[in-house]
Structure formats: structure tokens, C-alpha cells
């Protein structure tokens, strides 16, 4: 499969410097990035198969002695390339706060309780259709120090591998209708509304399991397009 990776597609991404998110001010390059051709070093990328995961790695509610507190949810979808073809065998990793908005990370000092039955990390590998599925708990909102009364909207962090190292994506999945959207500089660092909305999962009634868990659908599109005859000069 011969793929190419148009730079224009990256217009959907946030800029490196987005001053509303204060940490970007000292952590963004100040000199212009050097444009380089895509060589084999960029067009190739790591492959992780099913040996990278263990049974149950995608169920964050069954990693401890008991069930975590909170609203049990299913999060599923497909990893796709820019032609919306499935990316099979892609490693998908997630991490998130618990239902109270607290991460197990030692640096998180938000005075909300940890849940002894919830770590908040999961991983899986997509199948031939690019499909992945997690069972977890809906994460809570939490405060952060970016500005006065700053709160992050509910979100799940995603790390995804695609066809090449250029397809590598770290992003965040948000939940529909979150009242914190207008106030969050990380969410709004994506300036195009349509692109921003692609980070919001959709509520999936069809796959909601009666008497058990709500379901959210989150398709992820990573870099990579098939070369078409008119692209080959």
C-alpha cells in the first residue's frame, strides 16, 4: 500500500502556540519548522499486534477486586485513515480521570477521592475493520490552574498508531453537550468548529446495553491517503 501524507490536512490541528493555554507559551518552537520531504524514516512506523495486549486490557472496570464507582460506559469506534479506510492492527491506548475527576497520577493533587477500584488506563488493538472497544467509567470534570475557575470538560485521553510514524496521534475524546466547552482553551485550541466537533463522541443508543451501560461512538481519523493516479507525477 502506497500512501502519502498531505501537510494541508494538518490545518485541522491546533497551532503549537495557543496562548490561551498558558503552558504552550514556553513549550512551543519559536523558529519556523523546517519542511523536509517524507523519507522512509517518516513513511514507515511501528507495528503492534495482539501480542502487545492481554485479555481484559480494554475493560477498565475489571482491573481491581471490585467495580469502580461512577457511570459505566462503553466507548467504541474505528481508527480510519484519510480515505476513511480502516487502520487494522493499530494500538490504541487510553487514560483518564475517575468519576470524581481525579487521576491516579502522583502529581494530581485535586482534593477529590481516588477510587481503589479504578486506575484509569486501558489499551487495545484494532481488528480488521479498524474497530476498537473499551468499557470504562465516565470521567469527571476537574479544576486546573490555567486561569481563574478553570475546569477541564470531561474527556478521555487517546494515543493511537496509524500506518506510519506520521500518523501518530495523541488526542482527547470529549462528551456531547458539555457545558465547559466554551471555556476550555485546550478544546478551543482547535479553531475550526467542524474539526473541534470531531473530538466529541456521539451518543450511541443503538449500542447502549439495556440495564447496563450507555454507549458512545468515537471514530478517529489519522494521517495517510492512498495515492491516486493523478497524484503520481
Amino acid at each position: 500500500m502506497s500512501l502519502f501524507y498531505p501537510r494541508e490536512s494538518l490545518d485541522a490541528f491546533p497551532k503549537h502556540l495557543s496562548p490561551g493555554y498558558k503552558s504552550t507559551v514556553k513549550r512551543s518552537p519559536s523558529k519556523p519548522l523546517i519542511i523536509v520531504p517524507h523519507t522512509l524514516s517518516e513513511l514507515s512506523g511501528p507495528v503492534y499486534g495482539h501480542d502487545a495486549i492481554e485479555d481484559g486490557d480494554n475493560d477498565l472496570t475489571r482491573q481491581h477486586g471490585g467495580e469502580p464507582l461512577g457511570e459505566r460506559i462503553i466507548v467504541h469506534g474505528c481508527v480510519l485513515d484519510e480515505d476513511r479506510r480502516p487502520v487494522a492492527g493499530a494500538l490504541v491506548e487510553i487514560w483518564q480521570a475517575n468519576a470524581c475527576g481525579r487521576y491516579v497520577h502522583v502529581v494530581d493533587q485535586h482534593p477529590a477521592p481516588l477510587d481503589p477500584n479504578f486506575t484509569g488506563a486501558g489499551r487495545t488493538v484494532t481488528d480488521k475493520s479498524g474497530y476498537y472497544k473499551f468499557v470504562t467509567i465516565k470521567p469527571g470534570a476537574y479544576p486546573w490552574g490555567n486561569h481563574h475557575n478553570a475546569w477541564r470538560p470531561n474527556h478521555i485521553h487517546f494515543s493511537v498508531f496509524g500506518h506510519s510514524f506520521l500518523s501518530r496521534l495523541v488526542t482527547q475524546m470529549y462528551f456531547p453537550g458539555d457545558p465547559l466547552f466554551p471555556f476550555d482553551p485546550i478544546f478551543n485550541s482547535v479553531t475550526d468548529e467542524k474539526a473541534r466537533n470531531r473530538m466529541i463522541a456521539s451518543f450511541d443508543l443503538e449500542n447502549t446495553v439495556p440495564d447496563w451501560a450507555l454507549c458512545y461512538r468515537f471514530d478517529i481519523v489519522v494521517r495517510g491517503r492512498e495515492k491516486t493516479p493523478e497524484d503520481v507525477h
Partner: peptide, 19 residues
Amino acid sequence: SELTPSQTVGPYYAYGLTP
């Protein structure tokens, strides 16, 4: 293109990505 935009890895990735 309809890429899913990138977002920061944030300060709390370690227990998931580099345990």
C-alpha cells in the same frame, strides 16, 4: 481531510503510557 485534531498528552499520561 477530516483528521481528528491532536490534543496535548497532558501532565498525567504516565500511568497509562509509561507505567
